[in-house]
Write a protein that binds this DNA or RNA. Structure first.
Lengths: 189, 189
DNA sequence: TGCAGCGATTGATCTAAATCAAAATCGTCG
DNA sequence: CGACGATTTTGATTTAGATCAATCGCTGCA
């Protein structure tokens, strides 16, 4: 399956039919509250799996944040396979576990101040795009803000401030070079 | 196993040897950051299971918040059992899933304002202590504050404000009667 | 080449919650 | 019963980040 930028892959509350693995591109999962506030619950990049739900329906919506190629597998097929094959069951458990750790880390983010949140976000993205110190961000400032529980203005100001202290450098607004990773790590307590 | 109030059951980073089920009492899991800030990640009451970890070690510490009687099972025994018995594997998966949903809900809490957080907390506790509208809180204001990402003063003021609007009533500082559940639900958007 | 439109930045002001500082209650134990 | 320590509440002040309001600067397209 392929999806264009900004296209919804599934909606919150819909039955969870497929499990998705990203071949190329990036995806975000999110929830919109009644008053329009949005919480981005996670970003998924090449190689990541998303759409796994504990009950039959999606707890969040998912949308492509860049052009995406996805591999899909029917949830029902996977469950049937897991019933017979212990290894598959194990992998399912591991996937849920990975997701759990992701969300637990996210909670620790949300109790920190703005600079710490942004630093943690940059390190998290850098860890996932292993090559070098340059991080290519597929998501907009608004997406980052909704992930970090901040406003777009605060994200922008904080990034700008980190640049002014030579901690990071912008090649362009979506390409960031980490110039002082230990300074970021120090913020990431 | 039994534990007294305020006694640590296990510490963050320790190998996860047991899985715990609460017979009576209450437990909280938490993490303390380098600068002393504490994040309570969850409260566990009678009937709840905690201590399940995706890798071999505990991601959080656990402590008894009241006198506790716990049932324990060796993690290794459980894993061995799951390898042979599909139902056990399923239960493991379901437990991890329950935990995942708990944490996802917790994230949605943390992006809300103080009143909404407190309202959501009260409803969550009320849902778990099914009898009537009275909620007996085993945890201190500080524990609630660290769970909600607020200060103890803000929690106290918010509860007091909810009482002044007749939404709740204090039998004592740890016993709360929900007098207007729909007002709380409205805050819980 | 110029310009329309969106995403990002910057600046000024406001506010919810934090912080600092006492007081008031509550339990518990001699 | 009374007193001490802990927990909770209340009050005054500060502040980090939100909100409101422009402006800037790409990027794509005619």
């Amino acid at each position: 399956m392929t999806f264009r930028r900004n296209v919804e892959i599934y909606g919150e509350g819909e039955p969870a039919v497929y499990l998705y693995k990203i071949q190329t591109g990036a995806v975000q999962t999110y929830k919109v509250l009644a008053d329009g506030r949005r919480q981005v619950s996670g970003f998924y990049l090449t190689g990541d799996t998303f759409g796994l739900e504990t009950d039959g329906e999606h707890a969040f919506s998912a949308e492509a944040i860049s052009e995406c190629k996805l591999l899909v597998i029917k949830r029902s097929a996977l469950v049937a396979l897991a019933a017979r094959d212990y290894d598959v069951a194990c992998q399912l458990l591991a996937l849920t576990g990975t997701e759990l750790r992701k969300v637990q880390d996210h909670i620790l983010l949300l109790i920190k101040n703005a600079e710490e949140r942004v630093a943690a976000f940059l390190l998290e993205m850098a860890a996932r795009v292993p090559v070098g110190a340059t991080v290519e961000l597929p998501m907009s400032r608004q997406d980052i803000a909704d992930y970090l529980g901040l406003t777009i203005e605060t994200v922008s100001r904080t990034l700008r401030h980190l640049e002014s202290t030579s901690t990071i450098h912008f090649s362009s607004s979506r390409r960031i070079v980490l110039r002082n990773r230990s300074a970021l790590t120090r913020l990431n307590t």
